[in-house]
Design a protein around this nucleic acid. Structure first.
Length: 1092
RNA sequence: GGGCGGUUAGCUCAGCUGGUUAGAGCACACGCCUGAUAAGCGUGAGGUCCCCGGUUCGAGUCCGGGAUCGCCCA
């Protein structure tokens, strides 16, 4: 006996992790990824950019999130016929690497590294960046992300660096790069620039001085606005004698560097008389607190607005500083328009009166906002200290800045300028490795003048589709609107060296745009030069008799990553044309610019998203990407950030091993909107697996189980038109599903597509399969059977394709088993197949509406059953149903048999509107009536409640208007202005909802009772078959004893029992074989089963 | 201090341009079904829609203020 070959491979219990390993092996062995890269792409290129991660850390859960989204759209577009270059990339330069290596080497003050040490340092950095590359490669493949890691771009490669130089050179040639000061946090003594992250942990509560200093105003420079306002308030300045602006600071050591006093333009200021210090100007809000602090009464003479005082000059607290700093010419000097160069009142929005006097002392060298203000007013910079924090001026010269406060305060006091000196407790950052307070200090720095391109940055942003949309004009838009110049230099070692060579006398800067150019300048071939420090620093050259040396700084790593559209192809231009020998690179770049799609987490708005956007706008005046998904962060179950120190990190690989990557991916896509924060937990992954994948698997395994028995001919499937209505309904649903998933993915809405798939699979399982089970077994009607198999097969195949971008593994498993065995010419992989096209002609909207009503009414009827307390096995005589629309009622009538069978009732009766049996709730159709009658609504509602609902129902049904008596007037309501809901009839177990109704007639007679008992017995025997481990097709012999109604039931329904349980015989005798029994208040029965 | 976003059932999340009784899944309890069966389905309980004020016939939804959490910037 030859066992017939199975049509499909048998499907057992799902083991997703194992299945995924098998699929990965299949992809690998058959080069499926390569084939997807090489398959015809009639629709052209869909451009995706990989935002480069750093490979020095371990891949974590949030990388699964990002990589899931980075994978789904390329997979989708590929199936649609686009080509996608999935070039990987690695971000390799920068601070995190340096800090890690520093820790390893125990290096602290980088200033002190000599050339040899730099060589060792950068060598170590280079090693470190790929410390975990193997883990990354494995992880990426395992989660099902298709990415070309072999040809990934690497930001430290010479080719990459050279392209970055080339970009910088083009910016340089257009005058976009300048040198200027930038305030940076320094660790003094070692004068090392720190990053925000490095100082974030160093904040401490400390006591600092809080001093109020008088800056005597020069009355001859009093602005007109001040004069006029004071006179209006009866105050003559000249009569007052000396008037001073009262300036507050917590850093007395910066007072020698003072160049301005800042007031808030909109704030109210008061001119007061102080018994101890003459006339003072300070914020109105600050008067009361200061009175308390200084314990004296301040008499308010007049009020001024901050804006009135702009340009009012004062005598600085340390006038001699300008002499010391050789800035004498600046002091007292005037601009062409007659305004002072410094030592005047300026306006600044950042001034507040919460602490202090509402007048800020401005020493622009020591604060970023202050430097910004100095730029706006064009004031010079006074460096009261050097970059090691040592005072260069005043009597405190030579002291460490923090130690100068005391002496300076005493000096001020001696000269009568100090009004009040106290202390304030606040948070201030310290460098945790040296213990020194941080010094904010203006250092020369290289800038890209992005602020000149604010308008273009904004306009190009308008062309970008942001998901979620609020980022566009919110976080990102605001950032562009308030754009400041991009400081691109860093005093570091491990980075792209800035390609600026400066003449020894500082008279000229040459920006080098290629190695070729550098070779020409240096007069030797540098093709093999490592472009990193320290080697590149050793390249010097002489031009016009001057020696040129490279500036010591390296490039901000964000510039590296923002340069990837160009540098990943080693783009090299001269002017706008490719450099000789780089024509191919140019073509590659052209084909891949700009990106159609990128995706990263929200913290990249000011990171990669910005650097991509800024470079593309400055050089090409167009966006670098057209669509961007901006992901929310992944946090733990309690909403806390996952971090190693908290021990709440969920590792991805164990999740893959336990539930499968598909389950994790599905969770990422569907758990919440992509832009929202996600609370991650294992429980939720499990839910994703059971909810969607589990249900899909069940249907699939059901199909395969019976298809292997019936061997339907799936190559020649019956025409849809001749299939039963149930099948045509499912076909219509499938077409609708294709439309919905396609539309969602076109809109970059993975979640929407996922939800549609989830809903469909649920309906497929719990309605279509549930209702049609019997058509898949012992179905003698060949056409009906073939139609059922064809319909379910088509549905499963389509679902496999539609979910391929989401859950690539399970989709592949279905495809291989369901399609490849049936259609030899089918695509080798689901991912090489063509995205399904919906056929609108197959979408029978009427049928969908009708079936919708059926499903709904069945739900209500089940609920009514549950309430009646009569279990479904017991048949009931009658079910009354209705629905709000005529079309739906027709549907209920049409599918009455389905409903009857599902609910186990003998008869289903559809009630028409206005039928005697029904009463109604009459409701105003608010969206219509609200607009029309507004305030009269409460009266309308009251009037409706009074009226006979059945009469109204008849009128509405006949299309007549309904007259309504309101206290003031009579109004006529059209039928569409009213909503009718059927109410449960008396004496029925009923449920109703929004016009849908199901009412069960609860009446059992003897015949029905026996039939119910018969079903109980069938169930008992079926369970016994299961216990015996019989196959669904095995035949049995039955023997039994029974008493009471059970005996009667068997006598009446014996043939049915035999039929249902595949029993060849049924004999009343002492049970033999496998024994089961049942006994309750009705009676008892015992059965014996023997395999035939 | 500023900007952006969140706050809805025990948990994770939906709720479109304001509209009648605020939903789903999970978990829990109870029940049903049984030829997909260590699966499936239903029902139930569970809500001051963060708070206060305003607009409106009507506010989870719009406006103002506040609280709180997260992210970014200073």
């Amino acid at each position: 006996m030859v066992e017939e070959k199975k049509l499909f491979q048998e499907v057992g219990e799902p083991n997703f992790p194992k299945l995924e390993e098998a699929v990965l092996a299949f992809w690998r062995e058959n080069n499926i990824f390569t084939k997807s890269d090489q398959k015809p792409a009639p629709k052209g290129e869909f451009v995706f950019y990989e935002g480069p991660p750093t490979a020095n850390g371990q891949p974590a859960m949030h990388h699964v999130l990002a990589r899931s989204f980075k994978d789904i759209f390329p997979r989708y577009k590929s199936m649609q016929g686009y080509h996608i270059t999935r070039k990987g990339g690695w971000d390799t330069h920068g601070l995190p690497v340096e800090i890690a290596v520093e820790k390893k080497l125990g290096v602290l003050g980088r200033k002190s590294l000599n050339q040899e040490e730099i060589a060792e340092f950068t060598r170590q950095c280079r090693e470190w960046v790929f410390a975990n590359i193997e883990d990354w490669n494995y992880f990426t493949e395992r989660m099902g992300m298709w990415l070309d890691l072999e040809n990934a771009y690497v930001t430290y490669h010479n080719s990459y660096i050279e392209s970055v130089w080339n970009l910088l050179k083009r910016m340089w040639d257009r005058g976009m790069i300048v040198q200027d000061y930038k305030v940076v946090p320094l660790s003094p003594r070692i004068s090392t620039t720190l990053s925000q992250n490095e100082i974030a942990d160093g904040y401490r509560e400390v006591d600092d001085p809080s001093v109020y200093v008088r800056f005597p105003l020069k009355l001859e420079t009093t602005p007109m606005a001040v004069r006029e306002k004071l006179e209006a308030q009866g105050v003559r300045l000249e009569a007052l004698g000396e008037v001073a602006i009262l300036v507050w600071t917590t850093t007395p050591w910066t007072l020698p560097s003072n160049t301005m006093a800042a007031v808030h333009p909109e704030m109210e200021y008061a001119l007061v008389r102080s018994p101890s210090a003459g006339h003072l100007i300070l914020a109105r809000e600050a008067v009361a607190p200061l009175q308390a602090l200084h314990k004296e009464d301040l008499e308010v003479l007049a009020h001024l607005k901050g804006a009135d005082m702009e340009w009012w000059e004062y005598t600085p607290p340390f006038p001699e500083v300008c002499v010391e700093l050789e800035a004498v010419e600046a002091q007292g000097q005037r601009r062409p328009d007659g305004r002072p160069v410094m030592h005047f009142i300026a306006l600044a929005d950042f001034v507040s009166a919460e602490d202090g006097s509402g007048v800020a002392h401005e020493a622009p060298v020591y604060g970023a906002e202050d430097l910004e203000l100095a730029r706006r007013y064009g004031t010079p910079l006074l460096f009261g200290t050097d970059e090691y924090g040592i005072m260069r001026v005043s009597k405190e010269r030579g002291k460490f800045f923090k130690e100068a406060d005391k002496g300076l305060i005493q000096d001020l006091k001696a000269r009568g300028l100090l009004y009040h000196a106290g202390q304030i407790r606040h948070r201030y950052p310290f460098h945790d490795r040296t213990g020194d307070p941080i010094l904010y200090f203006a250092k020369p720095s290289w800038y890209v003048k992005t602020s000149n391109y604010r308008a273009q940055l904004w306009e190009n942003n308008e062309k970008i589709n942001w998901v979620p949309p609020h980022i566009k004009h919110g976080r990102f838009g605001n950032w562009l609107k308030d754009n400041v110049d991009w400081a691109i230099s860093r005093e570091r070692y491990w980075g792209t060296p800035l390609p600026f060579w400066v003449a020894e006398d500082g008279s000229e800067v040459i920006c080098v745009g290629s190695v070729r150019e550098l070779s020409a300048l240096a007069g030797r071939d540098l093709s093999d030069l490592d472009l990193h420090r320290p080697y590149v620093d050793e390249v010097t050259f002489v031009k016009d008799g001057k020696t040129f040396r490279r500036v010591p700084e390296v490039l901000d790593v964000w510039f590296d990553s923002g340069a990837m559209p160009y540098a990943q192809w080693h783009l090299m231009l001269e002017g706008e044309k490719p450099m000789e020998g780089y024509e191919e690179n140019y073509a590659l770049w052209q084909r891949h610019f700009p990106a159609d799609f990128i995706c990263e987490a929200i913290d990249q708005t000011r990171g990669w998203f910005y650097s991509l956007h800024a470079i593309a706008t400055l050089l090409y005046n167009q966006p670098a990407f057209k669509n961007v998904i901006c992901l929310g962060h992944l946090v733990d179950e309690k909403g806390f950030k996952m971090s190693k120190s908290k021990g709440n990190v969920v590792e991805p690989l164990p999740m893959f091993d336990k539930y499968g990557a598909d389950a994790v991916r599905w969770y990422m896509f569907t758990a919440s909107e992509p832009g929202e924060q996600k609370r991650f937990s294992e429980r939720l992954v499990q839910e994703a697996q059971r909810g969607f994948l589990g249900t899909l698997w069940n249907v699939y395994s059901f199909f395969v189980l019976y298809a292997n028995l019936d061997r339907p001919n799936l190559n020649q499937r019956p025409e849809v038109a001749i299939r039963p209505e149930m099948d045509r309904w499912l076909v219509a649903r499938v077409q609708q599903l294709i439309q919905k998933v396609t539309a969602a993915l076109d809109a970059y809405d993975a979640r929407g597509g996922g939800k549609e798939l989830e809903r469909f699979v649920d309906e497929l399982s719990n309605w279509y399969v549930r209702r049609n089970r019997r058509r898949f077994w012992k179905n003698e009607d060949a056409l009906d059977r073939e139609a059922a198999y064809a319909t379910l097969w088509e549905a499963l195949v389509t679902v496999a394709q539609l979910c391929a971008p989401f859950t690539p593994f399970v989709a592949e498993a279905l495809w291989q088993n369901l399609v490849r065995s049936v259609e030899p010419k089918a695509a080798e992989s689901v991912h090489l197949s063509d995205w399904p096209q919906a056929n609108p002609a197959l979408i029978d909207h009427g049928l969908l509406t009708q079936m919708g009503a059926v499903v709904r009414v069945v739900g209500l009827a089940r609920s009514a059953r549950a309430k009646s307390g009569i279990k479904t096995r017991m048949p009931l005589p009658r079910l009354l149903v209705t629905a709000p629309s005529e079309e739906e009622r027709v549907g209920l009538q049409h599918f009455a048999n389905e409903i009857a069978e599902e609910l186990n009732v003998k008869q289903v009766e559809v009630l028409a509107l206005g039928e005697e049996l029904l009463t109604y709730r009459v409701l105003p159709n608010l969206p219509i009536l609200g607009k029309k009658y507004g305030k009269q609504l409460p009266a309308i509602r009251a009037a409706l409640a009074q009226m006979d609902s059945r009469a109204i129902a008849r009128a509405v049904r006949a299309g007549q208007t309904v007259a309504l008596e309101l206290p003031e007037q009579t109004i006529h309501l059209a039928p569409e202005e009213l909503l009718l809901e059927a109410l449960s009839p008396e004496g029925y177990a009923a449920e109703e909802e929004e016009g849908y109704l199901a009412a069960l007639e609860v009446r059992l007679d003897e015949a029905l009772r026996l039939e119910g008992l018969c079903r109980d017995l069938i169930r008992l025997i079926q369970q016994a078959r299961k216990e015996m481990g019989l196959k669904v097709s095995d035949r049995i012999h039955l023997t039994y004893t029974a008493e009471g109604p059970y005996a009667l039931a068997i006598a009446q329904h014996g043939p049915r029992i035999q039929e249902e349980t595949l029993a060849l015989s049924l004999r009343a005798q002492e049970p033999q074989g496998h024994l089961v029994e049942l006994s309750d208040e009705e009676g008892a029965a015992r059965f014996g089963l023997q395999k035939a």
